Computed example of a mutant assay.
Amino acid sequence: MDTILSINNLTKKFGYLTAVKNLSFTIKKGNVYGILGPNGSGKSTTLGIVLNVVNKTEGDFHWFEGNTSTHDALKKVGAIIERPNFYPYMTAEQNLKLVCRIKDVPFSKIHEKLEIVGLLERKDSKFQTYSLGMKQRLAIASALLNDPEILILDEPTNGLDPQGIHQIREIIKQIAAKGTTILLASHLLDEVEKVCSHVVVLRKGVKLYSGRVDEMISSHGFFELKSNKKEELIALLESHPSFGNIKVADQLVTAFLNEPIKSEDFNQYLFSQGIILTHLVQRKESLEEQFLQLTDNNQN
């Protein structure tokens, strides 16, 4: 599979602040990547570096197997890293014609891209009459005009209402389905879980996880347990190879599985050990629970 972008030990310091620290990951063609982390985790800085907007301090990155200069590579990239900025008194079509001239792209692309983002019927409306969601969709159309191999989006649904968020996510899925690689930065776990195939989790500029979203949430889940013999239950779980992390909150014991176990088999086993459960629920972990585990385990 072709490598679109490889980032190697990238570091960016702003004075005493290290915004990105020894970051490495690779983006392969045809996937949707999410850079996930809270505000201040280094997502936008990372995108700024690979787009030549921010200078790196250390490390390096290569576009398209390193066979082309960054300047030439960026001609094959579409990016939205700031709020959409078009001329308010011009129509959507007029604004996109300007972008076509800058990118040296034929005007014939305009209707095709407006249709993708659902704005073809509003092509003659002035930009200032657009809602925030429509402005964001026009920005996506603009970024697609040069038929980029990769589309980069920084917090694409920020500030939008639920309908606007849904529309943007559906558009991202449609673009990806046609083979365009996508890299999006988001602080929303829900967004990454619904849209992305791969995720890089950042916290304070440090990578906590990199890999497939489904592998991150393909753990064997966990049991939520209660028993009148809580201490004996915890001791048994901690010594049992099938269990990893054990969390206790008041009377509820949460036991994360290292391997699949059926709840009825587990219940029977505990009974044979003289432990009777008053509560037993088996659940799968969501990306949010995985994310919280990652960030909990990496506190400074």
Rank of each mutant, 00 (worst) to 15 (best):
M1W: 10
I7P: 04
N8E: 14
K13G: 01
T18M: 08
A19E: 03
N22K: 13
K29V: 07
K29M: 10
K29W: 02
G30A: 05
N31M: 10
G34D: 11
I35W: 08
L36I: 05
P38V: 08
G40N: 04
G40D: 01
S41L: 01
S41F: 05
T45P: 00
I49H: 03
V50T: 07
V53P: 00
K56A: 13
T57N: 09
H62I: 11
F64W: 10
S69M: 07
D72W: 05
D72G: 02
A79C: 12
I81H: 10
R83H: 15
N85I: 07
F86D: 03
F86E: 05
F86K: 09
Y87A: 06
P88K: 08
T91M: 01
E93M: 10
L96H: 01
D104Q: 15
V105F: 09
P106T: 10
S108C: 02
K109E: 15
K109M: 13
K113R: 14
I116D: 11
V117H: 01
L120E: 15
E121R: 11
S125A: 06
T129L: 00
G133V: 09
K135H: 07
Q136R: 11
S142P: 03
L144Y: 08
D147C: 04
I150F: 02
L151Y: 04
L160G: 09
D161L: 01
Q163I: 14
G164L: 03
H166L: 15
I168D: 06
E170L: 08
A176N: 04
A177S: 15
T180H: 08
T180D: 08
T181V: 04
L183T: 09
S186M: 08
L188T: 08
V192D: 07
K194W: 05
K194N: 13
L202C: 05
K204F: 11
V206D: 12
K207F: 02
Y209H: 07
S210L: 07
G211P: 06
G211K: 03
H220I: 04
F223H: 06
K229M: 03
E232V: 00
L233F: 10
A235I: 10
P241I: 05
G244E: 12
I246E: 06
I246T: 08
V248Q: 06
Q251N: 14
L252H: 03
V253Y: 05
V253A: 07
N258H: 12
E259P: 00
E259G: 00
E264F: 11
F266N: 09
F271P: 00
S272H: 07
Q273W: 01
G274E: 00
I275E: 08
L277M: 02
T278E: 11
R283M: 11
R283V: 06
L287F: 14
E288R: 14
E289V: 04
Q290M: 13
Q290W: 01
L294G: 06
D296E: 14
